[in-house]
Design a protein around this nucleic acid. Structure first.
Lengths: 339, 339
DNA sequence: ACCGCGATTGACAACGTTGTCAAAAAATGA
DNA sequence: TCATTTTTTGACAACGTTGTCAATCGCGGT
């Protein structure tokens, strides 16, 4: 690799002068600058980051650690969002995934510290609580899609309560009263919050919430789930007074709801309205008819996480500790007002 | 951050001695070692990678550049595979995405060079041809999911020809003769190769290939596609002598085929067999009945890409220039032998 | 010609690490 | 005991960069 020294030798000036030009630093004679620049070009000089960092400058590398569960592929949008924010400042991302193993996670922290990263985003693939056991890490840590149980770290999470509220309100406003709910695993923070939001919407609309219409669409422990949405949906749709709409915990569940409805001869949205969650475009835009859903703002979460990290500590006031990112409605064709 | 110097001062030995212990290098007196180790622990020393690298050691950072189109979320498995391979050697990954912009791509190459990465994996989100315009880069570059048109770089790609062959053979072996094909955009390398593979399977089985049953399931240019699989499938299923099975270019297309079949009162797999491609678990395992499909080996592609990069140049013989990774059949419940 | 000034340039140290080589200490053999 | 070998340790340089400070240059004013 070409070094300043080599360029300096070729150009017949001192190392420092070349350095100045590279960083377009202090005043350099226009003529010299031009000369040297030519050599920089022709030798294809690129500054050595390691040397720069060692010299004491702020590191431009950030770390991103995920607990990577491959079942939620769109969560990588967190990474994309983070990269977009980093890009603005010419920073880069060292990424690694712990696969959920604590040993591996400790190893990664060491690795990040070895690289002297300027900060770390810890991104969970499910909205959940997570305690980063790294008091030794002196740089900023921001949690994305998860939060510390002691609330002692800034964290960026989706506003699931609002998401549930939005789902319910959308259907209630369109006249639906008997609304089925196919939920995710109750252990998930998301499930709890969304249920809360739905109940708030029902209360606001003055409609009684019918617990009997709320069923689990997923069974099994986290990590080894299996879907039962097809069966349970058939069941609630076969009841005497069947619901006119169904709220789903995931677009994936919505997919099974579509099939269950089809198997009973019900057409969406004419006979049944369906609303999803996540906006996995792969599904929501492919379903027929396309799915009205509430988007999980992964991209925005990643973006904000980096933004918070780049902000001077001072600004990271208490009010920013836990940032909620809105979950917005994406209207497509799977819902219909009740005549 | 704690340095060797600080540890040395505390332990009352020279910097070099501490260095030796950190790298459990030459012979060090057992007693000294133990003493110093205690201080290393208590001060929580972690070697500074930048300094190490500057000293001349091989860089442990690799670069991964993607052209990130968010529509194929599972392609991130390439990243996961790469990380798995890296992990074995304590190496790490600097990732960045060009978003398909050449300017941005050039910028990223500079960035990778600035960090003196030991090699770069260029991963495309679609199997396609790509020419890395970086002759200046002296480290190894491996293409993943894409290949150089001059074939001058090692590249790891899915064996799409075999994939298409597998799809067709699977159905032919089960007695299907009239087989519909819902394809991707013809511009894709994958489309061409799979078609080739299918024709090979038909020829081997002595069955005439009916071009009339091959239809496009996607319209529009790359990047702004829209699905028409639902409509075209309904069309071919409405013909007098309708196909008994359908081969899909994607699980996503298969999803629409399911809905098209349902809309005509056809049950899968009893009235129609369907076979997909990609094995997007989000879809293939959620469809009802679950989808038999051919897996795109993204994870393996990523793993091998790093493996090739870590191999000394010598071994990268010509035979390795273009590595095909097999696309294996994942058997589920969407196909049925013809009675 | 001389002085002083600003503009331009360069010598040198330092960042944290490790390879090289020599010095010091300990162990061995006579 | 002393010479010799072996083990253990440390001084120093170097990697590529930039901050500090001093040196040099050009030029206008006296």
């Amino acid at each position: 690799m070409v070094t300043l020294k080599q360029v300096a030798a070729r150009a017949g000036v001192s190392i420092k002068t070349v350095s100045r030009i590279v960083n377009d630093d202090a005043a350099v004679n226009a003529k010299t600058r031009e000369q040297v620049q030519r050599h920089l070009q022709s030798l294809n000089y690129i500054p050595n980051n390691a040397a720069r960092q060692m010299r004491g400058g702020a590191s431009t590398i950030f770390g991103l650690m995920t607990d990577a569960v491959a079942t939620t592929p769109y969560s990588v949008d967190i990474v994309r969002g983070a990269q977009a924010a980093l890009r603005e400042n010419q920073q880069t991302l060292l990424i690694a995934s712990s696969d959920g193993e604590p040993d591996r996670e400790a190893e990664l922290w060491r690795m990040f510290r070895a690289h002297r990263v300027a900060g770390v985003v810890y991104a969970a693939m499910f909205h959940r609580s997570h305690d980063v056991g790294q008091p030794a890490f002196d740089k900023s840590i921001v949690l994305a899609n998860c939060f510390a149980s002691y609330n002692d770290r800034p964290s960026i999470i989706p506003d699931d309560e609002m998401g549930g509220y939005t789902q319910a309100k959308y259907l209630l406003q369109r006249g639906h009263r008997r609304i089925g709910i196919v939920t995710l695993i109750p252990e998930l923070e998301a499930t709890r919050l969304r249920g809360q939001g739905m109940r708030r919407a029902f209360a606001e609309a003055g409609v009684a919430f019918d617990d009997a219409l709320e069923v689990r669409g997923v069974h099994g422990a986290l990590g080894s789930e299996f879907l039962v949405a097809y069966d349970v949906t058939r069941e609630i749709l076969s009841r005497p007074n069947r619901p006119t709409a169904i709220i789903c915990g995931t677009d994936q569940l919505a997919m099974q709801v579509y099939f269950a409805a089809g198997s009973l001869g019900l057409t969406i949205p004419d006979d049944l309205s369906v609303i999803g969650f996540d906006d996995l475009r792969l599904i929501s835009e492919t379903l027929y008819p396309q799915l009205t859903t509430v988007a999980l703002p992964y991209y925005e979460i990643g973006r904000r996480a980096v933004e918070v990290m780049n902000r001077p500590e001072a600004e990271t006031s208490l009010s920013l500790q836990k940032q909620l990112v809105p979950c917005l409605l994406i209207e497509r064709n799977s819902c219909k007002p009740l005549a």
